[in-house]
Design a protein around this nucleic acid. Structure first.
Lengths: 190, 190
DNA sequence: TTTTGACCAAATGTCCAAATTAGTCAGTAA
DNA sequence: TTACTGACTAATTTGGACATTTGGTCAAAA
């Protein structure tokens, strides 16, 4: 195998999707960047969506790895959830592909982009849900509905990181940790 | 004063905005429904936006009244916040005008509709913030940032009422109260 | 057998004339 | 004189004919 055409295609498509988004990436363009004929792409992927799926699935896998790496078994459940969630949302801001996709979903409502956003969200929810279930079994936290709890946590994180700064100064990582601790883990009542 | 033309206009416009939204409501239509010449509208309101503002300001006032009515001084802060927030979000589902406006903002991005949504959100935040400040002064709850706390509460409510049911069975009013109590007011840790 | 790019139908974008709309104002009615 | 009106205008939006671009195919070349 002199050149791995499949890899060339995937790399070219990743670049193009990251720069221009799903809709504005054409198969002709991908073929040209990858230095292959357009037909070659279709020997590996039967549609543009399938090519896109392969790339976004890798993205989600990478995200999971990043989240797992953020976890430190010697720390408490609280600290780990914070570290993992913060890392995942940081990941979103570091990777051109996620930035572009979220923008495309929000501004142009491209269905393919919106589907990926949903898949990403579900992957994050599953990740946290799993951690919560384990923490319950270990007796680290109170018994609770893991589905609902992971949902509440993610919503709160997204709100604090992305929504809060639409009208306020961004919150520091430490401040977010404190807020989450105060609300989710401790409660507000006297 | 045989007929109150101003009221006729406001009523007609309210109906039309509720049915068709801001963009699809024409001043000719409002004039026709109100049984006045179009010029008459412009003796009371200098632009379509100004007419719209008058109507949406009434809406926000009505919302505040509904929220205040939901509050019962003999109950705890927790119960009252829940009652008020739930009432406000219920209000959104009961009033055609808010339903239409939120839909128009989401689907068509009509600037006028999006501005109103923002005004509504700010009004709700101010309302809760005020209640939180009073509760702190009375020593009913822990000291906390009222701005941030009201933000967290509203985001959580909206998530539980509107976002949760995109992928799950809707939560009952009681369940929402319980969830909020568990997280915001008590905390999750052992 | 693998790769290719010319080719096709379908989707998308580009015009521009016709229709619609917010806002005005000369004139009518009270 | 005052309150009201609707024909009018400038600006924007719409519809639809026409041109271009795009995802996907396939006969031929490598």
């Amino acid at each position: 195998m002199v050149v791995d055409r499949r890899k060339m295609i995937v790399d070219a498509a990743t670049n193009s999707f990251s720069q221009f988004g799903f809709k504005a990436t054409t198969m002709d363009q991908v073929a040209k960047i990858a230095n292959v004929g357009k037909g070659t792409i279709y020997t590996f992927f039967s549609t543009k969506e399938e090519l896109f799926d392969e790339i976004t699935n890798s993205l989600i896998k990478e995200m999971k790895i990043a989240a797992e790496e953020a976890i430190d078994e010697t720390l408490t459940f609280q600290e780990n959830v914070h570290r993992a969630l913060y890392r995942i949302l940081e990941f979103r801001l570091e990777h051109q592909l996620t930035i572009k996709l979220f923008q495309e979903g929000r501004e142009m409502r491209t269905p393919a982009a919106m589907e990926v956003i949903e898949r990403i969200e579900k992957a994050i929810l599953n990740f946290i849900k799993d951690k919560i279930e384990k923490a319950i079994n270990k007796g680290e936290i109170q018994r609770c509905d893991p589905e609902l709890t992971s949902f509440v946590m993610l919503k709160l994180y997204v709100a604090l990181i992305f929504d809060w700064e639409k009208n306020h100064e961004p919150l520091s990582k430490e401040k977010i940790a404190k807020v989450l601790e105060q609300y989710i883990f401790e409660g507000l009542s006297k």
